[in-house]
């Protein structure tokens, strides 16, 4: 393996000064204005930003659905300025969307997982074994032949994750995948994502929930097509001033943390999650 290949292999996403403008009537509207971000293989990054800040566009450029207008972007070592590479990267970087209803192509979980594998031209017997493995992995083995309409929102999102696994995606982007679920379903999908992350999958977790942000070790914040912050949660919530500037509603734990900060607690002791805070008390 040459050095160059290995180096490329270390990074899942390498964006440098990435720009994107989309046609909006007669004008071209700038959507992404110079984004530079590196995401290593096997990393967990949380991405946030207000609606319409360009999050979804950025994600769709990452998985090759939209070609970048300028700058450079390579995903899994492939330069996405080339259409062929964009087609290849679609499988490697998979998306789980917000609406659980709109992602199932098959009429049973079995068929839905099969759809992605069929497109890859896999051998039939191998495919059946693989489908059952994946259903097992996402906890839907007992519902393999159920009508997808009978699945709960959380189960449908698990199925969508299963489809990403069928394509052997190296990276999964969860685009506010829990925002339409109830607390139990939300916890369920978050836990599944963590499991995959622990087994080596790169995860980009897009969310507007403060609790989910605070649980991630690296947070990227977008605003108006730009990357406003890329770093750890403590600096973001307690030292950057950005949350107030953006008008965020801090989570209860962070509000308590800010009080402790005023009482001269050192930055690295300030709590981010409820269990962390409870453990300190």
């Amino acid at each position: 393996m040459t050095r160059a290949v290995r180096k490329a292999g270390m990074r899942m996403i390498r964006a440098h000064n990435l720009t994107l403008s989309l046609r909006d009537g007669q004008h071209r509207r700038p959507v992404l204005q110079g984004i530079s971000i590196h995401i290593g293989r096997g990393e967990w990054v949380a991405l946030t930003g207000a609606n319409g800040c360009g999050k979804t566009s950025l994600i769709r450029t990452f998985n090759g659905l939209i070609p970048p207008s300028g700058g450079s972007l390579s995903v899994a070592g492939l330069d996405l300025r080339s259409p062929q590479n964009r087609a290849d990267v679609k499988q490697q970087v998979q998306l789980v969307f917000q609406n659980p209803e709109a992602q199932t192509v098959g009429s049973t979980p079995f068929e839905d997982i099969a759809f992605g594998l069929e497109n890859r031209g896999l051998d039939r017997n191998l495919m059946v074994t693989r489908i059952h493995d994946i259903l097992q992995q996402v906890g839907l083995a007992h519902k393999a032949e159920a009508d997808v309409a009978s699945l709960s929102g959380g189960e449908r999102q698990r199925l969508a994750v299963g489809c990403c696994l069928a394509l052997e995606a190296g990276m999964i982007i969860f685009d506010e995948a829990t925002s339409m679920l109830d607390p139990a379903g939300r916890q369920d999908i978050l836990e599944l994502a963590r499991q995959l992350w622990r087994s080596g999958t790169t995860v980009l977790w897009v969310t507007q929930r403060m609790e989910e942000l605070a649980e991630s070790q690296r947070i990227a914040v977008m605003g108006d097509g730009r990357l406003l912050y890329d770093g750890d949660p403590r600096t973001l919530f307690y030292a950057s001033g950005l949350p107030d500037a953006l008008g965020w509603v801090p989570s209860p734990v962070v509000r308590i943390g800010r009080l402790l900060q005023r009482q001269n607690w050192p930055l690295h002791l300030l709590p981010l999650t409820e269990p962390q805070l409870e453990a300190m008390l």
Partner: peptide, 17 residues
Amino acid sequence: APGLSAATIGPASGDAP
């Protein structure tokens, strides 16, 4: 959880999940 470095009091900042 990845970031649920629950009882980590000292070193959690910038810690790998």
